[in-house]
Amino acid sequence: MRAHFTTSRLLVVIMFLSLMVASLWLAPHAMAADPSAEIGQAVGTVDADTWRQVKDGDNSIDSRHDSNYNLINQSGETWRQIRNRWISPGGLIALGGMLAVLAIFYLLVGRNDLDHPRSGKLMLRWTALERAMHWTLATLFLILAITGINLLWGKFVFRNIFGDVFWANMIMATKLAHNYLGPLFSIMLILVLAKWLSLNLPKKHDFEWFRQGGGMIKGKHPDAGFANGGEKAWYWILASVGLVVIVSGLVMDFPIFGQTRDVMQWTNAFHGIASLILIAVSFGHIYIGTAGTEGALEGMKTGYVDETWAKQHHNLWYDEVKQAEAADPQSDPATAPDDALARQQRPN
């Protein structure tokens, strides 16, 4: 058993290291394109004043009907550099780094197990609706993350491996999935954020939770309500960075409102950066929710958690629920419907 774990951990480390190496290789090695040089070659006999104007794009008339493109797209090269020089390798480092940190953490610290045996008594933590919302959102997130990553880096891997026809279909499917599921994800994210807003309002004890590092290392368990500091942080990252992702995504996905080329460039850059942050953080969320914490995944799977788990990770919530039960002894947690139970057991 132990040996098996070691092997898998080693694998993770190797994967991570290879990603790091790959990211170095992927860093743009080409010379920067020089549109000025290209157009200098392409257009003769234009004096310096005109050049200045070419770059400003003032007072020009285009033979293309309704075109609002300047003669020279000054920001195109900037966008290219931001995307290829910073976002692409940066994202690789971020994602790879996150995986590495998690792997190393797992190797060093291991799973956060329950301190006490399971009580066998269950508490309702997530209603069916909430679980459905979570998993829908999670599925969409994963698809978008994978397709997004494919749009960013896929060309370095799959075309060479599988050939043009496969790649053509794969990348087209990727783009269609990304563009059509993106708006769905946006809606889901908004709904989820709205639904769980009240659970995630920061409380004083959350700061203490953070000061103690969530108790991850020291093995102590700082106070936490229904959502602990870490979960709230994830919520607020989703509510901020996630919002950036969906807004920028929607701007790009619906280029029918006269978005300029510059707007598209900037939204693309923001979308890339924000998405990669989100994906990186999601690795942490996924780790904690699965391999990192004993009993966490079953809460989102079944909706119920063991009281021991609740006491250890969300002691304030546990206390609250117990007080409420004491105040209303008629209720029977085992038979009451989810929603009624939720009203009782969930302080929102």
């Binding site: 043009d164 026809v165 053509a168 279909n169 087209m172 499917a173 269609l176």
Partner: peptide, 9 residues
């Protein structure tokens, strides 16, 4: 060519 082979293209 590719157009025929590619279901979405």
């Amino acid at each position: 060519g590719l157009a025929a082979a590619s279901f979405m293209a």
